[in-house]
């Protein structure tokens, strides 16, 4: 018996979602990016299509994160409190394909910046780079609704990715996305059924099914990655098997999660066996990103320029060899 390639075909495929809008489309971005569209598991070109490579975003902030580790800060010291300039640096020097603006400083307990301040930052980033944008609201229901509604309004027509809604708080922001033409992140806590339920709730309120990106919630390496990894594989398998309410592109946040944990911050003198701190942070983020990439992530928000470089180059390598065996 000679070897024959064991192919599996799927009945479903992942929704195609476009981010950003050019001037013809009513926005000001220089180009758009499309996610999704695959009809097989990630990079299985031998049995299906994957028309769009996964993309890598980098993140800027409305207020300097308290836990931003030194080795990372070394890359951004001159721009860290200037989101417009930092965005520019990420795009021009480090190759970010999108910019995520995290507006956590508007959280009532983390700076309580006003809606106007948030809007100012949003506009700064909008004018300093021309790539599609992601806006991430604070982890506080009321303030999130207040800030993001306004963000949606002032960026009308740009088709930004508005990050995020969850089951207990989705109506206000979803409505604003519909009104101003944005795409939405539906976040759920590492659970297939909860993810599906939220997508159903959204489509039930007539939210367009070609404007949803799922965030299955990233647990980083050593802190729940095993759950995220497997939930993503299950979501993707179910989506490909024909469950339309799970067949959306997935976003993951290895940067935010990885640089928040002890492994990215504790010096080697305290943990000699852990190895060099500066390298460790990059490795932690890269290992998380690689595993989630093969589990089905289409949009990765990363922090370290070296992680961005390697993940982008691996994605390019995969697609350069497309055609499969």
């Amino acid at each position: 018996m000679a070897f024959e390639i064991p192919r599996e075909t799927n009945t479903g495929s992942i929704a195609e979602i476009t981010l950003g809008a050019t001037s013809e489309q009513g926005g000001t971005r220089s180009h758009t990016l499309t996610l999704g569209g695959s009809s097989s598991l990630p990079f299985h070109f031998f049995e299906g299509e994957q028309p769009h490579p996964p993309v890598v975003a980098m993140e800027v902030f409305d207020s300097v994160p308290t836990k931003y580790p030194e080795p990372l800060l070394d890359y951004y010291r001159d721009v860290i409190d200037n989101p417009g300039e930092m965005a520019k640096k990420c795009v021009e020097e480090y190759g970010a394909e999108l910019i995520s603006v995290r507006l956590e400083g508007t959280h009532p307990e983390k700076g309580n910046k006003s809606v106007d301040e948030a809007v100012e930052i949003v506009q700064k980033v909008l004018s300093s780079v021309s790539v599609p944008l992601i806006f991430t609201g604070p982890s506080h229901f009321e303030k999130n609704n207040e800030v993001m509604k306004k963000v949606c309004e002032v960026t009308a027509g740009e088709n930004c990715l508005i990050n995020y809604v969850e089951t207990d708080n989705y109506k206000t922001i979803a409505a604003a996305c519909i009104a101003y033409g944005h795409t939405l992140v539906a976040q759920s806590p590492i659970d297939v059924n909860l993810a599906k339920q939220l997508n159903i709730l959204l489509t039930d309120m007539n939210f367009p099914a070609d404007k949803i990106v799922m965030d299955p919630l990233t647990g980083t390496l050593g802190y729940g990655l095993e759950y995220t990894y497997s939930i993503m594989e299950r979501i993707r398998t179910d989506g490909l098997a024909g469950d339309k309410m799970l067949a959306f592109p997935m976003l993951v946040t290895p940067g935010y999660e990885s640089f928040n944990v002890k492994e990215a911050r504790a010096p080697q003198k305290d943990y000699p066996d852990w190895g060099d701190l500066a390298q460790r942070g990059i490795y932690w983020e890269t290992a998380t990103a690689v595993s989630l990439l093969v589990a089905g992530a289409e949009l990765l928000i990363l922090y370290h320029p070296q992680s961005v470089e390697i993940i982008k180059s691996k994605i390019a390598e995969i697609f350069a060899a497309e055609g499969g065996e």
Binding site: L221, G222, L225, E263, D273, W274, G275, D276, L277, Q279, R280, Y283, W284, A287, S291
Partner: peptide, 11 residues
Amino acid sequence: DQALLYTLFTL
């Protein structure tokens, strides 16, 4: 490379 090994062990 120690940091690399520690990362791979954890993964």
